[in-house]
Amino acid sequence: MIRFEHVTKRYDDGTTAVDDLSFEVAEGELVTLVGPSGCGKTTTMMMVNRLVEPTSGRVLVDGRDIAGVDPVALRRKIGYVIQQVGLFPHRTVLDNTATVPALLGWKKTAARARAAELLELVGLDPAVHGPRYPAQLSGGQRQRVGVARALAADPPVLLMDEPFGAVDPVVRERLQNEFLTLQATVRKTVLLVTHDIEEAVRMGDRMAVYGQGRIEQFDTPATVLGSPATPYVADFVGSDRGLKRLAVTPVTEADLDIRKGSREGYVGDPEEHEDGTHVPLGTSLKDALAVLLQHDTGRLTVTGEDGRPLGVLTPAGVHRALRRATTPAEDRTAHARPLPTERRATK
């Protein structure tokens, strides 16, 4: 859906922001661009909607070189979410959300209906929040409105520049979870810029780790954490990268201990199942361990789609899962993002 072909951006003062950049983002994929300030990640993203023009090379969206596309028309077909949100303070939340459909010539009733639908999708009651103005919302609510506005015209591509950076850590994590749930439904092609390695790992199907104007490694979070391509990447992702892998490694049946012959009293003990020590298959190891550490049983029941116990996760199973996550050939399969209902522990 998005392809960079030997793209370079060099400014008049001689500064090279991006140097010979080539990579591709598949349709429906969420790719995070992560790196320190000034590394070129935001410049990269802004070249997709022509807010920055490349010095050389080509940027293609859906197979078309965007250099030949009218910039205004291009931007109206690409959603854009920024940290400061950028809502119009004098317009209501509903009218803010309906901005792009209105610019595209939609009838007012249709634009507002679409806006109400999107507000509900991001968890805001249009009847309650629609008539309000941005100043009457919390930071997290304004960020949700920004996402709704970016999605209002149903764009195939969504650009997000530090979208959750302006809110406190608790709200930020909740917004990240909500966006991942939303993404599982709408499946947009997303470029998300962040300087936070935790966010890049948590959000991305794949992640691009930037050095100075270049991508040092472009792969799944599990591969980047388990097999850093360069010393720079290893240093950037941190010495605790083994712990970070917990967030991107799902629990599979291969990680479970199962008593042969019968599961009664071992996996399917009703009391154990009712006290909260169980999670659905596909839950991340991080979430599974969070539940496990709340109890003294030393094991965690894992259930299937029908809610029936499949086996138990023990410390030995966690170790097996982490070893699996560091095998490059298996990383790409293991990191397939679970459905939103499978990402959360049942409590």
Rank of each mutant, 00 (worst) to 15 (best):
G79W: 00
V122G: 07
D12V: 15
A26P: 06
D287W: 12
A150E: 05
D257T: 15
W106F: 12
G130C: 01
L104P: 03
P231Y: 06
L124R: 05
G40M: 00
R343L: 05
A110N: 07
E271N: 13
V52M: 05
T185I: 13
P338I: 00
A115R: 00
T326A: 09
A148K: 03
G304W: 01
L124T: 05
P228G: 14
K347H: 13
P309H: 11
G261F: 15
P126S: 01
A153P: 08
L137N: 10
A316G: 08
R344L: 12
T32G: 02
L285Q: 08
D20P: 08
G304Y: 05
D196L: 04
K188N: 04
K244M: 14
A152N: 05
K286W: 12
V170T: 13
T8P: 07
M160K: 07
P228W: 00
M207V: 15
V18E: 01
R3I: 12
L60F: 15
L180Y: 02
A184D: 13
V170D: 03
D70G: 15
P89N: 10
G86C: 11
Q212H: 14
V61H: 09
P221N: 09
D70M: 02
V25P: 03
T8Q: 02
T341P: 06
G86A: 13
H295Y: 09
V72L: 11
T230P: 03
T109I: 12
G123W: 00
H90E: 10
D257F: 15
L30Y: 03
A222F: 01
L60N: 08
A73Y: 11
L191I: 15
V59I: 14
V267P: 03
R344S: 12
N49S: 10
T333E: 04
Y210M: 04
A254P: 04
V193D: 03
A208I: 00
G311E: 04
A26N: 09
N96L: 00
L225E: 04
T223C: 04
T283Q: 06
E120P: 05
Y232D: 02
C39G: 11
A152F: 01
L137A: 09
Y11P: 03
L322G: 11
N49T: 06
T185G: 05
R172C: 10
E342V: 14
D240H: 14
A17K: 00
A254S: 13
L243F: 14
L191E: 06
L285S: 07
S284K: 10
V81M: 07
S284W: 11
D255E: 06
T97Y: 02
I215A: 08
G38R: 12
E330L: 14
Q176P: 06
V302W: 06
A152P: 08
G105D: 04
D12I: 14
Q83V: 00
H195Q: 11
K188M: 02
P131H: 07
V186H: 07
F236Y: 04
P250I: 01
T314Y: 10
I66G: 06
L30Q: 05
Y232N: 03
D125K: 01
R58D: 10
L103Q: 09
P155K: 10
A316H: 12
D12M: 11
A115W: 00
A334K: 03
I258L: 06
L191D: 07
L339K: 08
V31W: 04
S22T: 01
L137E: 08
V312D: 03
T341Y: 14
R76H: 15
I197V: 15
R241C: 10
D331W: 11
G40N: 00
A102Y: 11
